[in-house]
Write a protein that binds this DNA or RNA. Structure first.
Lengths: 334, 334
DNA sequence: TTGAAAGCGCTACCAA
DNA sequence: TTGGTAGCGCTTTCAA
């Protein structure tokens, strides 16, 4: 591999000039710049990442911590990873993949100077990693909404607000008994966003004075049937559903279809989830899109800004508006 | 961050001694080693990855090229990525995530000395990246079976052999008309493994003198129905199916159930695919498991060996045996 | 069994 | 506008 010295020699300049041409951190005459760039091209020169990292204290690599365990939603994780990697590349960063299961990864890559900063997925309300990350003194962007952000940047979808939008929409249509289906605790551990959505749901329902019922659901036909039964038992006047569980949604729709329940005539339904996932359903439903890719993109943009020394840590909650696709209507008899 | 100098000072030894204690490349007295390790622990010392890479010409990072486009099977990709990262960590390697879409990534990470070696997924029979990789002179392991491996290591599942196993099993049961369902060309580009499976299928069928029918299928209820119709049109004596398309399988099963076709009484079915994916079906089917995680694990082991300077490039094809789950039986009237 | 010191290839400061 | 060069933190050879 050619070194910066080889390029300098070939172009008849000093190595520092080559460095400055490449980094653009110094004014260079057009003639010199051209000679250097020619030499770079001729030799196929590429700076040695390690040498550069050593001299500049920057690796141009960001660490991405993803949950790779069984019960993480692979569609969502993939969509997120894709957005992160493509956005990172646009900012001249590469991505080091770290798994949540790899305890010690944060310390290792950070104090070993493997990465300039971190994007950490799936942060829970009381995630112990938040305190650790704060101690590491590296720019980090958390995906999620920890109770204490400790000076770290956070991005997430505003699940509470989405729930309020869904409830408001249904209340406006005249519904007075609304059910919420969310992921069961087992399948998402203590994922904060489930609770945040439920809190928003209950708050909005209380404010509107409507009755609610809630039930977790597993992604299986039986669980879907049981879930519907449970909601009806809790609340006999149930006329609408908010479903915050992409994987269970098809089974719920199947169960309803089997019962002969028609949407929206007999029941209204609003889903909260990624459009890329729900879009693969057989049937279109009213949707509050969780813009997973957008969250990933914003996370990297925020990290890149912090690494560039501009901007400060902040908490950003993305929103979306309800897209109607014919699964909601006024309840029967109105 | 503490440097090796700090540790040396703290332990009262020279920096080279610290280096040797950490690398184990030189005999060190127990006393010295203990003092050094104490100092390391006390200072929380962690070698600077860039400095190490510069001095040793090794980064302890491997590049993993994955297809992150829409139509890649996310379940399979995730399973693979998980196996690669965990295996890599076991060998003291970190993983740099590269996407297939990022043209130039191979050259960049390779000549920039960002990675020691590469694992490249989804290699097609005539993949242009094979020649490029050969030119880069870095250890690489290809997932797939290129026509020319050009001195590179390859790992994959033996799809041709799996097809032969499936056909042999069905022929042994007495079937004389067998259909093959595989992914449509659009959804997998020119993925070589689809062709390899089909070749094995046709070869085994020809050898046994049984009639065949083949039809691609998209993962939708309509496509599944159309696919079944097409197979029957091609071959009226169809009594068994080999399905090499995880995503279409549930729709095929639904379509058959709707028609009142019972497995295995009316039709025998063998699936070829990842157990982790087909396991989530409602119904168990005879399966030739594609051990995705195993392929990832083996790929990293092979790469680690090559990076350690032991072993040579080789082509490894993993196999699996048919697991019976009650979806095959002798055809009607036998 | 240990130490000294020469680089690895680059960046960025100090000079010119 | 350009060059010289110290030094980033480590590995490894040469000496002892």
């Amino acid at each position: 591999m050619a070194t910066i010295m080889d390029v300098a020699q070939e172009a008849g300049v000093s190595p520092s000039t080559v460095s400055y041409v490449l980094s653009g951190k110094r004014a260079i005459s057009a003639a010199t710049r051209a000679r250097v760039l020619d030499a770079v091209a001729a030799l196929g020169y590429r700076p040695h990442a390690g040498a550069r990292a050593l001299a500049s204290a920057r690796t141009q690599v960001i660490g991405l911590v993803v949950p790779l365990h069984e019960d993480a939603d692979v569609n969502v994780v993939m969509q997120f990873v894709r957005a992160v990697t493509t956005t990172a590349r646009r900012h001249e960063y590469d991505v080091l993949l770290l798994t949540q299961e790899d305890a010690g990864a944060l310390e290792r890559v950070t104090s070993g100077a493997l990465v300039d900063g971190l994007v950490v997925m799936d942060i829970e309300a009381d995630d112990p990693r938040v305190a650790l990350l704060a101690r590491l003194h590296r720019p980090a962007v958390l995906i999620g909404l920890p109770r204490e952000s400790r000076g770290l940047s956070c991005v997430d979808f505003d699940f509470a607000r989405a729930a309020r939008s869904a409830v408001d929409h249904l209340v406006r249509l005249g519904h007075r008994g609304i059910g919420l289906v969310s992921a069961s605790a087992s399948s998402v551990h203590r994922a904060g966003y489930v609770d945040r959505l439920r809190a928003g749901f209950e708050e909005a329902a209380a404010a509107a004075g409507v009755a609610v019922a809630t039930s977790p659901c597993d992604p299986s036909p039986q669980a879907a049937r049981a879930c519907l039964a449970s909601l009806r038992a809790q609340q006999s006047g149930l006329t609408a559903l908010v479903v915050h569980h992409e994987a269970a949604l098809p089974h719920l729709l199947d169960a309803l279809a089997e019962e002969g329940v028609r949407l929206p005539q007999d029941l209204s339904l609003v889903a909260v989830g990624s459009a890329e996932v729900t879009g693969r359903l057989g049937r279109a439903v009213d949707l509050l899109d969780v813009p997973v890719g957008e969250v990933g993109r914003v996370a990297v943009e925020m990290l890149a800004e912090r690494l560039a020394g501009v901007g400060t840590a902040e908490v950003r909650l993305l929103t979306s508006t309800l897209a109607e696709h014919g699964s909601t209507a006024p309840p029967r008899g109105r």
